[in-house]
Simulated assay, not measured.
Amino acid sequence: MLNFIGKGSAFNTKLGNNSCYIRKNDSMLLIDAGGTVFHKLQELNLFNGLKSLHIVITHTHPDHCGSLGEVIFYPYYYNQIKPTVYFPDKELMKSYFKAIGVKDEMCSLISDMNLTIDDICLGKIKLGFIKVPHVETIPAFGFIMETDNKKIYYSGDANNIPGDVLALLKDGNLDMMYQDTCGIDYDKNAHLSINKLKDMIPNELRSKVYCMHQDGYLDPEMVIKLGFNLV
């Protein structure tokens, strides 16, 4: 469903910054644009032939937003298209655009909590943003995405899973969950440890959960043994 071009936490750079995309024909939906993402998009030739680009941002930490400028500038100048950025905090993103030199004519910004992307190639994609606990300094958002008759939860960076999302999973109303998961576990961690994740998700539902944003302490063999997936 989602194609990951990076799956690492901020300091686990060997796995690349956590980011993924859906591409159909000439259109692409990109989730997050950390510092390593623009290079990877070029390496994979994902700008080639692109006529429509939608960018969903979960929060403004550098490993999720660090190359957003390039990801906007390149298609604007080389593909002659105006990307659309989706982020709930309008004023924060406008300030970020101003700081990095993104002009109003270079991209569109949509800040609704609930919206529908209607793209000629991607079809209709419903997005519902959810504020999630991460750090105190900036807002962070996960979202529920509905596309191709699938309902997906994507956590962004979060140290917990919202109760409403867990209820959807347990009631059989979520097809997949992409969850920020780390190996290190300590008080006031900004990310969700595998120890906490296993306590929250029943065994019979773990095959629907995909662990992403992996730190250097996460043991892949343990993740699989517990019944979860790795992106």
Rank of each mutant, 00 (worst) to 15 (best):
G128Q: 15
E136Q: 12
D157P: 08
P139Y: 04
I110C: 10
D180K: 11
Y178I: 13
K94F: 00
D199Y: 12
T147P: 00
D180E: 03
V165Q: 03
G156W: 02
Y86L: 04
E136G: 09
P133S: 08
N114G: 07
M113C: 09
Y86D: 02
G123R: 02
M113I: 10
K103F: 12
K170M: 10
G156V: 02
K188I: 13
L174E: 07
V132M: 09
I110G: 00
V85C: 03
T116Q: 10
K198Q: 13
L197H: 13
Y178E: 01
I201R: 12
K188M: 15
N114C: 12
I184W: 00
L168P: 11
F143G: 05
H134S: 09
L122P: 13
I130Q: 10
S111I: 02
L92G: 03
E146I: 14
N159Q: 05
M176N: 11
D171K: 15
D175W: 02
M177T: 03
F143K: 06
D171T: 11
K131H: 14
G172E: 08
S111V: 00
E136F: 15
T181Q: 05
L109E: 01
C182F: 07
K150L: 13
Y86T: 03
L115H: 07
D119F: 04
N195Y: 06
L192C: 13
F141S: 10
D119N: 07
I100F: 09
I152S: 04
G123T: 04
K82I: 05
L115D: 09
N195T: 06
I117T: 12
D157H: 14
K198F: 06
I161V: 08
M176R: 14
I130K: 15
G183Y: 06
K131I: 11
Q179G: 08
D148W: 03
N203P: 03
M176D: 14
E204W: 06
I144W: 08
I125K: 03
N160P: 00
Y186M: 11
F141I: 06
P202H: 08
G163C: 03
Y96D: 04
E105K: 14
D185I: 06
D180P: 10
A190N: 14
L205Q: 09
L192S: 10
V102N: 01
A140K: 12
L127K: 06
K170S: 10
V102I: 15
I110M: 01
S155N: 03
N149T: 07
D118T: 14
C107I: 01
T84C: 09
K196V: 13
K198A: 09
P202T: 07
D104Q: 10
K151N: 09
G163F: 05
K198W: 00
T84H: 00
T147C: 07
S95F: 02
E91T: 05
Y154V: 15
G123F: 04
H134G: 01
L192N: 09
Y96W: 12
P202K: 13
L122S: 04
A99H: 10
P133M: 11
N160Y: 11
L174C: 11
L169E: 09
M93A: 00
N195I: 06
E105L: 00
S155F: 04
E146N: 09
L197F: 12
L205T: 07
A158M: 04
D175E: 11
L92T: 10
L127G: 01
G156N: 02
P88H: 05
D119Q: 02
G101R: 05
L192K: 08
